[in-house]
């Protein structure tokens, strides 16, 4: 039995300090945490399972922990993560995986606008659709969208790759379509197998930047 932390009516400071003490080897289940924003912030190790929905900024600055949300995640999921894994079984709101330097974010459902904005090296996989402006000013890493994307996809992409399984409303500046290579297919198949996503990697489109220096000549 995993230890359980009931966050009902408790403040972030109380829950956070308890959680840090409880993280010693086995996964900690946190219940009733939807009102807490910035939970499991900056953790270096351990496994946290959120029963139900989470608040905003879950796993911000995550630096090695594995965080699973059984329900939906709030805004800014795994904001500025550097290492670790954040997995959401439901949907994620606005801005999942923004500013990440590394690690993996997997959302089984849909994700909102500005997903993976300024991604600097993380692997961000969305099992469903994403909103507008996904991958804006992405500087490195992979954004995989199994479903459809909204408008302005990959706006001012600088480096890194965006893979889309479905359709997109429009592409952003500094993006171009690039043929999928065998390596890409292999990589995507690996992601799908690892996270139990049903999709055919061969049918994906790949976006790459036009230039690494789009702002000034």
């Amino acid at each position: 039995m995993s230890p359980v932390l009931d966050a009902k009516d408790q403040e972030l400071k109380t829950v956070s300090r308890k959680l840090r003490k409880m993280l010693n080897g086995q996964p900690v289940v946190v219940k009733n945490a939807a009102h807490l924003h910035g939970l499991a912030a900056g953790l270096k190790h351990g496994e946290v399972v959120i029963e139900g929905h989470s608040g905003d900024y879950l796993g911000v600055l995550n630096d090695g922990a594995t965080i699973t949300v059984k329900g939906d995640a709030g805004k800014y999921l795994a904001d500025n993560m550097t290492r670790g894994r954040v997995l959401v079984e439901g949907n994620a709101d606005y801005g999942a995986g923004q500013y990440c330097y590394g690690g993996t974010v997997v959302v089984k459902g849909n994700a909102g606008d500005f997903t993976a904005t300024m991604n600097k090296g993380a692997t961000i996989i969305i099992g469903g659709d994403v909103g507008s402006e996904a991958g804006t000013y992405m500087l490195a890493g992979d954004l995989v969208i199994v479903g459809d994307a909204g408008a302005n996809l990959g706006n001012y992409l600088i480096r890194g790759n965006i893979y889309v399984g479905g359709e997109w409303a429009s592409l952003g500046h500094n993006t171009r379509l690039e043929p999928l290579t065998e390596e890409d297919v292999h990589k995507l198949e690996g992601y799908f197998a690892e996270h139990g996503i049903q999709a055919d990697a061969h049918g994906f489109h790949k976006l790459a930047p036009l230039s690494a220096k789009p702002f000034y000549k």
Binding site: L12, K13, H37, Y57, Y76, N80, G95, Y99, F114
Partner: peptide, 23 residues
């Protein structure tokens, strides 16, 4: 960016201060 992509409202700004205290 000229603004925080991860702050959409003043409430978010308060949350940012709170999580920085927590971290």
């Amino acid at each position: 960016p000229c603004r925080y992509y991860d702050v959409l409202s003043f409430e978010d700004m308060k949350k940012m201060v709170a999580f920085l205290r927590d971290v």
